[in-house]
């Protein structure tokens, strides 16, 4: 447990949460972006955090946090691990960093999103298992966009016709689904749309179509500024073998 002395008369708040990002501040302190159940994404000042010695304040570790002060920068007063750290390795670790980047880029500050919080915890847990990370990422992206108010209607087209598994659709942002006569480069099959909605994405075509859709939407809602974590997924290829 890392404990920082706090002034008794300042109101203190407690919440469970996760660390998303940490920025060094002054000599030994940090600005920490946390994602909490009851207060959403929140930026706190963590004093003395970078002194030698262990701290449970790491990404992907369930935490119990307490902070005080109501001004622009509340001070973290206590942090304890509230569960076993979720050990993400290899590609799953990149996925975890991607989730954190999404939350920082898209979630407004101090706006509680209990559904996104639960989804985040669930997605991290699924990433620790060895199966393909693609599908859980798509469900999380969908949940995040829904919670932000950019809800996608995936079971009906924009004109109100129910989506048919064997037909093809194009998703127009801020409008909805439009049926297209034949599959195109960024069209989706009706079966992909219902699999995305019902969390049953399975084959490669569905995963690829869902990824293309979510990527386009996220690109739009992040104002086209690229996400840094995506670069991690492209391994640097070494062209010729050693002499």
């Amino acid at each position: 447990m890392t404990s920082v002395p706090c002034k008794a008369w300042v109101m203190s708040t407690e919440a469970s949460g996760y660390l998303l990002h940490q920025i060094p501040y002054r000599e030994t302190s940090s600005l920490v972006d946390v994602f909490t159940l009851t207060h959403g994404r929140h930026r706190l000042l963590a004093r003395g955090l970078r002194k030698p010695g262990p701290t449970p304040l790491h990404p992907f570790t369930p935490l119990q946090l307490a902070w005080s002060g109501r001004g622009s920068l509340p001070v973290l007063t206590r942090v304890e691990a509230a569960g076993t750290p979720l050990t993400l390795t290899a590609t799953a670790l990149y996925c975890g960093l991607y989730l954190n980047e999404l939350l920082i880029r898209l979630l407004p500050q101090e706006d509680p999103c209990p559904a996104v919080y639960a989804g985040y915890h669930q997605t991290l847990t699924r990433l620790t298992q060895k199966d393909c990370p693609e599908a859980p990422l798509r469900y999380f992206e969908l949940l995040l966009l829904e919670s932000l108010g950019y809800g996608l209607r995936l079971d009906r087209s924009a004109v109100g016709c129910p989506v048919q598994a064997d037909r093809h659709y194009h998703y127009r942002i801020d409008y909805g689904l439009e049926e297209v006569p034949a599959p195109t480069a960024d069209s989706l099959s009706g079966s992909t749309l219902s699999a995305l909605q019902n969390h049953t994405l399975s084959d490669e075509i569905q995963l690829r179509q869902a990824k293309r859709l979510m990527r386009r939407l996220i690109h739009h809602y992040t104002q086209g500024k690229p996400l840094g974590s995506r670069a991690l997924f492209q391994t640097r290829t070494i062209t010729s073998p050693p002499a």
Partner: peptide, 11 residues
């Protein structure tokens, strides 16, 4: 080190 949120990528 690689830290996407700090703008440190492989490049």
């Amino acid at each position: 080190k690689l830290s996407p949120l700090d703008g440190m990528g492989p490049a």
